[in-house]
Design a protein around this nucleic acid. Structure first.
Lengths: 199, 199
DNA sequence: ACGGAGTATATAACTATTTATATACTGTTC
DNA sequence: GAACAGTATATAAATAGTTATATACTCCGT
């Protein structure tokens, strides 16, 4: 789907499959993920199509690296993707689907789920804030004089932070609503039931 | 991936593939999508695995409907998915990836993209608010006395509304930052360039 | 009676993604 | 020097998802 386009976007600077995987984990983790077994064959197919060109480089600490760069056809494909307008109908949030079906669990397990969700997102938000503060410390022009690629990367980072804040707030609202229902129905006390919480 | 689990969750009441597709469009559109060519074979495979059972029913307005219900094994599989904890590493937001690479376009096309994004999300938010107000009008217990399945469905709807509000705000911040940069650099006026905006 | 819209299911061909596994080289720790 | 962690690429097998297309039935308008 869009993995090819995302790789085209990431190859502003030449990089190997391994490099691209690292970048996914550091910078795009909050909106996309890809594993190496998908990245390598995708890069291969993109080279066959003429979107990329590659060269082998010796590595100081391991086997030789195959470094890819974007061709002019690759840049055109990237621009086409972007000028086609925003792809807004393909969002996928498994965890939110799970929330929609939590009535299948008992109340303690529901609370476990929501607490785990909140904790995960707090961790993710803190990671993003950490990345931002390192960036801020290292770049004297931050954030008003970032160059264009960094400016848009910072936009996505800011959305990540805002998004996590929204979700954390919402987790608290959900937990509140569940707590109010439990206390409003004294016959349905669940504190002595086992929770079936995940390991 | 999770489509099977999502279908298990949706089959709280028996439904056909067509019904499930309608539900996707109405209620889960903001966090998942699936097309019929994926739903039908998936339902088939789930029946083979014993997670679902089906029966053919005559339809008053078309060919016979194959109506699926969840078996006890299906319910167990759903509970296992939920008790495995939240799946938070699989989020996919193509449009946000696109934003990260907008430096490949010229300024007017960047602004077009962000305006289109904002307009889309305003539309989505209004749709969700419309669904919520219909619900409110039809259900006297809304929102404090919803039954459990509806309560969690309402949680996901509330997150959708909050999420869209966050993104709309963020679009404005991005547009502001771009506007301030343009006015701060008088030599880089772009008002006479063509925008390459999408159709 | 023909065409179009809506209801309903399905397959083929292709593309994308995940999981598991194999290979090979370097540096560090026991 | 053997085991382990990290760097680096790759393939096979399975599952998932998209796009295009085919089928068939009902109701409505013309």
């Amino acid at each position: 789907m869009s993995l090819q386009h995302i790789l085209l976007g990431m190859l502003e600077q030449p990089a190997s499959g391994y490099d691209l995987k690292q970048a996914f984990e550091q910078q795009q983790a909050h909106y996309w993920s890809a594993n190496l077994a998908q990245i390598y064959p995708t890069l291969n197919r993109m080279e066959e199509k003429g979107l990329l060109a590659s060269a082998e480089q010796p590595s100081p600490k391991g086997p030789p690296r195959r470094v890819y760069r974007r061709t002019s056809a690759g840049r055109e494909a990237l621009v086409d993707w972007l000028t086609g307008g925003p792809e807004v109908h393909t969002d996928r949030l498994s965890w939110l689907a799970q929330v929609g079906f939590l009535s299948a669990l008992d109340r303690p397990a529901q609370l476990d789920f929501l607490h785990a969700l909140k904790a995960e997102f707090q961790r993710h938000r803190d990671e993003l804030l950490g990345i931002e503060s390192h960036w801020k410390a290292a770049d004297p022009g931050f954030p008003d004089a970032l160059d264009e690629p960094d400016l848009f990367a910072h936009f996505t980072l800011r959305l990540g932070v805002k998004k996590y804040a929204t979700i954390i707030e919402w987790c608290d609202e959900c937990l509140d609503r569940l707590a109010r229902r439990s206390s409003a129905a004294p016959g349905t006390d669940t504190t002595t039931q086992s929770s079936g919480s995940p390991a």
